[in-house]
Design a protein around this nucleic acid. Structure first.
Lengths: 274, 274
DNA sequence: TGTACATCAGTGAACGCGCGTTCACTGATGTAC
DNA sequence: TGTACATCAGTGAACGCGCGTTCACTGATGTAC
């Protein structure tokens, strides 16, 4: 798997660079045209090439699209992973201001919380900086385009990163959801998860196949999926204009929502108390 | 405002019918092409007309798109309103099986819950039946197209209908969120809503301008907005393919999520108990 | 009820444009001996 | 180090296609008297 040569030939370097240039220009044009309005001819024109030359780099327009999609997924994925990694898994052991008894548990919970929120914010920050790439991967499907399997790996980086935050918390003794006490009007308990529990466990297993043990409780996993859909629902509404005239700077709403959903995932009361 | 004539002339009837036919055919073609791939020429061809004839009905392609968008918003809006209206605001007063003391309050809560869930299910049902119209209004914006103000009214029918469910509950004495008791790790309390509270109150006021009084508590309004984003986030993920290979029949996930989010909005514990 | 005029729907040709993809080609870069 | 051949990048013309919109026109429907 090591590169066959220490240094690339001039031809290989030129090819790599032009490939990057083509994708960059295509990305730039995405803004004005949308995914299926993207034009190979226009990209070539802007790069000072003849349109047929692009076919040396991408065998068809769909292949260029696929490359852009993979790059976009990898870009958000990388940002989210980095944002999470930047928050320590646990605060320094002898930090001040914690009671002795419940301190350890609170600290783990707080760390999980901060890492989760950092991941959510990274999604929104990237999306606002690259709205057209966001639309490419999370917006309506491009008509006539079928994403190949090679997009799946990059696509799951964000959800996997978020689930890993919860898994890491579980590995450090984060107690399972304590939501069993306060009942509510309808039957939505763990016992009613049914097939949902299986689906959630299967996903959690995928995420952690290199790190078995400490499985995420099914109800937490399912609520994490719900929070994941909320995160992207809110970002999509903000970017796609559903908030026009209401939550126009959506910053406050986003932060509040992310915090509330984190509490929801952990089974904590979504309350009004401090 | 009454129609100026009891019966339309033959010309007027023909015009109304053809307008409907054009939109119907355009809607059909949306499936294969997407919003900005929609072709006036193709629509005309399929209807056996010459393309320039369409300009007697819609002055431009964008105007046709606008009509389709308004129709789509009205279609979901109508379905959601009907689904909500089909659930009684309150169960019959002397229904059996309720304790005397807390019965009334529970009944109101249950009615609000059922009406909300009916609205959510109606969104998903409509979306799955009309995925391309859903993409048209909730997917990525069409490049180069600016939705005119006339789309706003139809667009808010769904969120307004959902908020009205909560308002009606409040008018019947639904207690405000009781979430003030159980604290959680971070400061996400009502006092921290800040500008968010103002935004939420402003929206709730819009919804209920014909019915002042009994304002929705700001935290409930904000959580309703969050649940609204979750609802559409989940439907979008399902329709746009983000659930491929995981929650492929998303029915169980959807029902569970809707129930959980309803509890979340009402400030009830999202628990595992029955 | 009948006529004169105005309104409107639909026609067909045209303008000017852009697109994805193929193909035979030239000339530069890389490789093997 | 030098030559012979293979690989590859980029060219330019062409194929076949579809698009939105305008315009002068014909003929049918509606209206006023």
């Amino acid at each position: 798997m090591a590169p066959p040569k220490a240094s690339l030939t001039a031809r290989e370097r030129a090819r790599a660079e032009l490939t990057r240039e083509i994708k960059k220009e295509a990305r730039r044009q995405l803004a004005g045209t949308g995914a299926d309005g993207l034009s190979l001819r226009a990209v070539a024109r802007e790069l000072g090439m003849v349109s047929s030359a692009l076919y040396r780099y991408f065998p068809s327009k769909d292949d260029l699209l696929t490359a852009l999609i993979i790059d976009a997924y990898d870009a958000v994925g990388e940002r989210v992973e980095a944002a999470i990694a930047a928050v320590p898994e646990e605060p320094p052991p002898d930090g001040p201001g914690r009671t002795v008894t419940a301190g350890r548990e609170d600290a783990t919970l707080g760390a999980v919380r901060e890492r989760w929120l950092a991941g959510c914010r990274a999604v929104r920050t990237w999306a606002r900086a690259h709205p057209h790439e966001y639309a490419l991967i999370y917006g309506s499907p491009v008509p006539g385009y079928q994403a190949p399997e090679s997009t799946i790996g990059p696509a799951v980086r964000v959800p996997f990163a978020l689930i890993r935050v919860l898994r890491d918390g579980a590995a450090r003794g984060l107690p399972p959801a304590d939501g069993g006490t306060a009942g509510n009007g309808s039957a939505t308990g763990n016992a009613d998860l049914g097939e949902l529990a299986d689906q959630a466990v299967a996903i959690a297993a995928l995420v952690t196949e290199t790190d078995p043990g400490n499985p995420l409780p099914p109800d937490v996993a399912v609520r994490a999926v719900i929070a994941w859909t909320q995160l992207f629902g809110m970002v999509s509404f903000e970017l796609f204009g559903q908030f026009a005239n209401s939550f126009d700077p959506a910053d406050a709403l986003f932060d509040y929502a992310a915090g509330q959903m984190m509490s929801f995932v952990l089974g904590k009361q979504s309350g009004t108390g401090k």
